[in-house]
Write a protein that binds this DNA or RNA. Sequence first.
DNA 1: AACATACCATACGGTATGGTATGGTTTTGT
DNA 2: ACAAAACCATACCATACCGTATGGTATGTT
Lengths: 190, 190
Amino acid sequence: MAEQASAGGRRSREDFLQAAFALMADGRGVEAISIDALCRRLAVSKGSFYWHFKNREALVEALIESWAGHYQQSIHAALEAEAEGEPRRVLEALVGFWLDSDISAIDRAMRHWAYSDERVLRAVQQADGLLFEFLLPVLKKLGHGAKEARRRARLLMAVGIAEPEVTHLPKVGSDRQEVRWVMEHIVAAK
Amino acid sequence: MAEQASAGGRRSREDFLQAAFALMADGRGVEAISIDALCRRLAVSKGSFYWHFKNREALVEALIESWAGHYQQSIHAALEAEAEGEPRRVLEALVGFWLDSDISAIDRAMRHWAYSDERVLRAVQQADGLLFEFLLPVLKKLGHGAKEARRRARLLMAVGIAEPEVTHLPKVGSDRQEVRWVMEHIVAAK
DNA sequence: AACATACCATACGGTATGGTATGGTTTTGT
DNA sequence: ACAAAACCATACCATACCGTATGGTATGTT
């Protein structure tokens, strides 16, 4: 414990956000984020927290905003760079982004949190919509019509989302091989 | 409020389990199951709860066991009856089972709960494994080899699991149409 | 030196929760 | 009818949490 942030020095708003994400990622979701737990993790007292945030709600709102920002930024960074190039490379980038372990842990927590908080739901749906919009033209480039593109984009995202849920089912080949198979099967025009 | 169970009469262990599932289904998952909330819902006091259960942990364990039992039973009821018939009909039955709103709400809650409780994780994985084993022969009947069957069964389950997560993305046709498309696309041999 | 600002510690109040102790009521067996 | 068992209500305690009040320290600024 006793996070970085220059262990003797002071804490910033960002430190609390980072610690909250960390709690969320390896805990029981948003419920794991208690102010006491945060302060323990940062080796600081509640006085500090309430200096940086009005209350727990303010932290929560900041968390949502921060996540949305990072998520969108990640998508842009991973995909926009490739957007003009070979469609398959764009999809590779997407998969790489999605399988990133840090992202996916927080991602799962956010998705569940969305069930109990409308604001989170909106943030997640907006992020999904963004990714979806990226996928559509890529699939069209691969020769699919509008309807087919929508269906396959949807399917692709469903698979991406559910992947962590089916890791226990017997796999046929390596991760790379599986990805390639899904690509060819879902993505390729018949 | 004030559940059935003969509103004046006494409560059984099963009543508490049912109420707990109900709380779980329309709440924030397992955290929504507080003893007070349960007792309020059943119009009874904590004395009753602690008569039927040693403590909250005991309730939780009973919940896991009960869910696993019901889930397996549902799978058998829905699929085994069709197991010898037309493969497509088996899959239709599966989809019908999966889209059942009650099941899927609790299902989602269980899946998330699994992240924070190993016992739940085992129960969910075992249930998934069961369904998976049902799917394999069906897909083989449709003309797929062993590898292809495993891959497609996995994909099919991923789609089923993730479906509730992508409901906000634009759909092309009606539910039935979408299901047919996925069937044809994932299930059918090319 | 005097003050201002930013930051943090400690102690406390209020509430929601899990849990216990104890006794009362209803049902059941004989 | 009567006792035992099953079932439940009430009062109470301990803990964990959010939030506040208040005082303290470090680093400037004038």
